[in-house]
């Protein structure tokens, strides 16, 4: 009788353990992030192909003062897309809704850091020689833009926490939490005081 009772308790313990782990690893991540589509389809591969012949820094360049230009404005797109190239839905949308009215495309940024973090691209890419892919992954090789996964609580992109919900990433793209910044700075012997990033 006692043995049966103990087995039942163990069974309940295991059920609780499994359910909680499933919730923690699968249900919570699914519920925590909302998926938001980009306003327009865009293929990096097409633009960097031999036909188009563009380089990454044609659009994502550093300014003369060292600032990062980020996502290009439509002034860059208009050089080629003043008139529609092809008949795809996205192409027509680009020309009719953004190029002709002169409206900027409200791209959703996967790697946007919070306002209180100062992140100079120039120091990381030029001085530290960190490749873009280390944080941004193989974004330049994608056929389409994936939806932005936005944290319902904080508004942060999932890319900041990292794709692996455990928060541990061992291969690019690495997560971009404050602890990741600090770890990397310490590993490279770079100043990691609060004021280094929070100015």
């Amino acid at each position: 009788m006692i043995l049966t009772q103990r087995r039942t308790t163990i069974l309940f313990f295991i059920i609780g353990l499994v359910v909680a782990m499933l919730a923690g690893w699968i249900a919570v991540p699914a519920a925590l992030y909302e998926s938001i589509e980009q306003p327009l389809g865009f293929s990096h591969v097409v633009h960097t192909s031999d036909d188009a012949g563009m380089e990454c820094d044609d659009c994502h360049h550093l300014t003369s003062e060292g600032g990062f230009a980020g996502i290009p404005k439509i002034a860059v797109c208009v050089d080629c897309h003043e008139e529609a190239i092809g008949t795809s839905v996205d192409e027509l949308k680009l020309v009719e809704e953004y190029i002709k009215p002169g409206r900027e495309i409200p791209w959703l940024v996967y790697a946007r850091q919070p306002d209180n973090a100062f992140f100079p691209h120039v120091r990381h890419t030029r001085l530290a020689k960190i490749p873009c892919e280390q944080c941004h992954g193989d974004h330049g090789q994608t056929e389409t833009l994936r939806p932005l996964k936005r944290n319902r609580f904080t508004g942060y992109s999932r890319d900041i926490w990292g794709n692996d919900f455990s928060g541990i990433t061992t291969s690019p793209p690495f997560s971009m939490k404050m602890s990741d910044c600090v770890d990397c700075h310490r590993k490279r012997g770079v100043r990691d005081s609060c004021l280094a990033c929070h100015k």
């Binding site: 909680a20 919730a23 923690g24 690893w25």
Partner: peptide, 8 residues
């Protein structure tokens, strides 16, 4: 324990 073993 299950929750503690998850990142949630």
């Amino acid at each position: 324990i299950g929750a503690a073993l998850s990142p949630a």
